[in-house]
């Protein structure tokens, strides 16, 4: 449900590494309950921006707050009030499904009682009663993705960051994953997502596209297509990313 509450707010947010400007004065807001697509070519600065917003990296200049907390002074509080999932790392392969849920529940500060209740509920909802005691490493990727997303929102964070959550999964699992994203936003969680699948950009309420460290475009998918006179988000992306000057 879209509301007027702002969950992410940045103003001229900048990060430099030596003389390289990875993120160059980006300004944007994300509203509560929104699915916000964060797109850009490899090397455009997405990962750096996302690491700042997750409280993992301090910016060079500019302002930003996430879930009401300041990225400079309150980055530890940010970490407690967000969820994070990436395709590269999200679960421990040599722990069982249940152990992973317990571990991440603990990390996110849930009590033993809450972990037990929410964990059982989660396993039931995913229909994984039989797999609960199995090592995560032995499960198909699609299942891992589902468990991983569910554990990332186990503590009902205000916002969840998803870094290429659907890379390499089959077309059915990819769509089931988006069903889960919609369900999460229905329950009030804001979703901040990166993807290289342009059809998925269509599922976002709003999409930003980064080129060379700046946000080159930010609007609803329909408005972007209109603005760039093309009929698909792929068209929008190609038009913008081709303007990139810097290499990776």
């Amino acid at each position: 449900m879209l509301s007027q509450e702002t969950v992410i707010k940045t103003h001229n947010l900048t990060k430099t590494f030596g003389d390289f400007i990875a993120v160059n004065a980006i300004t944007f807001e994300v509203k509560a309950g929104e699915i916000f697509g964060f797109l850009g070519a490899n090397g455009a600065g997405k990962t750096t921006a996302m690491r700042i917003l997750c409280g993992l990296l301090s910016p060079t200049s500019g302002e930003a707050s996430v879930a009401g907390y300041d990225v400079y002074k309150e980055n530890e509080s940010i970490k407690k009030h967000i969820g994070y999932m990436s395709q590269k790392f999200s679960l421990f392969e040599n722990l069982t499904v249940k152990e992973n849920i317990e571990f991440f529940g603990g990390i996110y500060g849930l009590s033993r009682k809450e972990i037990k209740e929410k964990g059982n509920d989660l396993i039931h909802r995913l229909g994984m009663e039989k797999e609960a005691e199995k090592l995560v490493g032995s499960l198909p990727l699609g299942w891992k993705q589902k468990i991983s997303f569910s554990t990332a929102i186990l503590h009902q964070p205000k916002i969840v960051f998803l870094d290429e959550p659907t890379g390499g999964v089959d077309p059915i699992t990819r769509r089931q994953f988006w069903d889960m994203i919609y369900e999460a936003t229905d329950s009030g969680i804001t979703v901040f997502v990166t993807t290289h699948y342009m059809d998925e950009a269509e599922y976002c309420n709003r999409v930003s596209i980064m080129v060379d460290g700046t946000i080159s475009a930010l609007d609803t998918p329909n408005n972007l297509k209109h603005q760039f006179e093309t009929d698909s988000m792929e068209g929008v992306f190609l038009k913008l990313a081709r303007q990139a000057k810097r290499g990776e």
Partner: peptide
């Protein structure tokens, strides 16, 4: 083997 996994649409092209 999966040379374009995780690669953006422009670089994939």
């Amino acid at each position: 083997d999966e040379p374009t996994t995780g690669v953006d649409p422009v670089s994939r092209k």
